[in-house]
Nucleic acid binder design. Structure first.
Lengths: 138, 138
DNA sequence: ATTTGACTTCGAGCGCACTCGAAGGTTTAA
DNA sequence: TTAAACCTTCGAGTGCGCTCGAAGTCAAAT
């Protein structure tokens, strides 16, 4: 039993991307050249799908295409480049972590605003209160 | 003592944006029309700076300009629109929270990969191991 | 007198990551 | 026979959020 492979259409569906994007990623070197069948059609292996998966995770965490390209290149260079691959991932890890912290910080500020709004919605302001607490300005 | 106001340059520096961006935000309706001095030059009040601050927080958490515009419009509509403002913020709050969760999930997957890489870097693989754990494919 | 910084309207350009369609080809299945 | 699904190269278009510069004006400060 040889490993099952997928057509580009199937791979696209499986990975939830468009066939356009799969060819695009291969074209710009994010994916290695995908193996072809007797008719020259792409056959995606488990490994290829794994690669797509990894790329999508990197993308989802905000890595720009240039970064992914660099990673793919380091991969193509074989085992010698493992330390660089590790370094790249660690750097990205750090960046993502900081991004999460930034989001959390800003989210807290928004939470604060929401609380103020809730107070103001619950109590109908009387003529003496001017609801200046609400935003001040936006 | 009247409230101190800032020139556009000062406001830009203070908020860490460009004067281009300040005018742009005003132009597209994110900021209210900024008050002018005798010479027609913008004078940014504390309130205006607060508005910029809020916008930057929304932006930093990924709210598109259209969303910010909607918020600004609701603000311009006065107190009657407070419930809608609240709703908009709550929706955004939810979205940001989900975004954070997504980042954390993907970050964990990346952490996993890093761990595998670290194992492989520590132990020089012998002829029997083929380091297939490392990425598999990227 | 000149430099600085502000103002206006306008439209072009940029970087990113796709996204799509055209045009022309082949193979395979119904 | 026809339709579906794949292939190629190519270039144009999209949406976002700026970003910039041009051209012309004005007023205050040195």
């Amino acid at each position: 039993m040889s490993a099952p492979t997928l057509s580009i259409q199937q791979a696209a569906t499986h990975s939830n991307v468009s066939v356009h994007t799969l060819r695009y990623y291969e074209r710009i070197g994010l994916l290695p050249p995908i193996a072809r069948d007797a008719n020259g059609q792409r056959r995606y292996t488990e490994r290829d799908l794994g690669a797509v998966n990894t790329l999508l995770r990197l993308r989802a965490t905000g890595m720009p295409i240039q970064g992914m390209k660099r990673f793919a290149e380091l991969f193509a260079q074989g085992e010698g480049a493992i330390p660089e691959r590790l370094a790249l991932l660690e750097e990205h890890q750090k960046a993502v972590h900081q991004r999460i912290l930034e989001l959390q910080t800003n989210l807290e500020a928004i939470d604060g605003k929401i609380k103020i709004y809730r107070k103001n919605t619950q109590v109908i302001p009387d003529s003496k209160s001017n609801s200046r607490g609400v935003g001040g300005s936006l």
